[in-house]
Design a protein around this nucleic acid. Structure first.
Lengths: 213, 213
DNA sequence: GTTGACATGGTAATAATTATCAAATACAAA
DNA sequence: TTTGTATTTGATAATTATTACCATGTCAAC
């Protein structure tokens, strides 16, 4: 809508193009990782700043989707989203015949309503597949002792490290959300497979080594 | 649903009761402020921890509402929300005849859908009123130079302070969101009414003093 | 009474985002 | 084309919201 007083710098242009290219609704950080390939010297702050400016200017949309991270969308036409409860990806969704249905509340409690968001959540195809595989693998008797993919990856990473690792170090090697890593580390610690010699630092135990042997 | 292995401690009980008492969908921090009046020694960590445990146990609901802060709800029956874009409050909303309408997408893109959330947004009654008052006050000619309520409050606070203040100091005196305070400080700085001698510290200028005189 | 699992308070750590500032850049006017 | 200046950038510090950690406390079962 309003493009006043906004210079179209090279960085800003690349960010806009990259966002329009896919329907993946990336976070600022994800977009930064993609754009670094083309502009290795770009700063994360520049990505954040421009996403804010572009959305204020109405050239992109800021999504207020489940989860604590902001996501952005290059598609301006009205549409809605599905959110995967397991891997946190966000996809577009087709509402079919309801698409043009103007949804309005009976009583708005005095609010001036300016918009409405319909958001579905569930489990995406990839995570469905992974769940199935996990079920296949786990035997019924020792199910609780079986390590999942993520846990095995983390243990293998720790096994290769000479010193105790922070969750950031592990995140660099294992492509997972930091939060998931922490949660898995806690589980592994309870099972006795990793130890935490210092706060927020983790290392593999002998039991852990034998678990991935 | 599952209350296994959860002790109903005094703190936990108070948190649950306090949450069930209102329909204000408080954040952990807001709830902490309320509960401190009854249990002055309670820790913020305890509030966070118990909200997590209570929602896992199914005794309360964690809301994934617009905004970066988690909100909690003591009402377990299915209902939807309105979110004020200006003051960020969240209220319940009545969907009327659509209440029992099971909303399902035509194509779920392979997702297994487990739920759907309908969220309205707009401007709450209080903010509508404030907007009206602001419009009344501002004269058309000098509109840009008029300071709004928030800005005046902030300037008065700074005028009373002997040293440069951080936004936290101001937040303690002026009951506003820290984000709004920073934003207003930036505006005030641009207008020359406040100066920033050190990063993140602000003090009133001579121009600022005359503006509130 | 002792034991052990769960809880608490206080605080450090973390993740995501925003603010700050010197240096670089875009762009309009000369 | 040059120049002046407001905007923008990259680097980094700060901030906010939340979670992790740990020593200490509580309570129920043996």
């Amino acid at each position: 809508m309003i493009k006043n007083q906004m210079r179209m710098t090279h960085q800003r242009d690349i960010i806009l193009r990259q966002l329009r290219k896919s329907t993946a609704h990336p976070t600022a950080d994800e977009l930064y990782e993609q754009i670094k390939k083309k502009l290795p010297r770009i700063s994360l702050a520049t990505v954040y700043r421009n996403l804010e400016i572009l959305s204020t200017a109405g050239l992109i949309k800021k999504l207020e989707i489940s989860g604590r991270r902001k996501r952005f969308d290059g598609e301006l036409r009205r549409h809605h989203h599905v959110y995967c409860l397991l891997c946190h990806r966000v996809d577009n969704i087709d509402l079919g015949q309801e698409e043009n249905f103007q949804f309005l509340p009976a009583k708005a409690g005095g609010y001036r309503i300016t918009g409405c968001r319909i958001e579905f959540f569930g489990i995406c195809p990839d995570c469905k597949k992974k769940l199935k595989e996990t079920k296949k693998m786990g035997c019924k008797k020792c199910g609780n002792e079986t390590l999942n993919d993520q846990q095995q990856q983390i243990l293998k990473t720790l096994a290769q490290s000479a010193t105790a690792c922070g969750s950031k170090d592990i995140a660099a090697a294992v492509k997972l959300e930091p939060k998931q890593i922490s949660s898995q580390l806690t589980t592994l610690k309870k099972k006795g497979y990793v130890a935490s010699p210092v706060r927020c630092k983790y290392e593999i135990t002998e039991a852990g080594k034998s678990a991935i042997a």
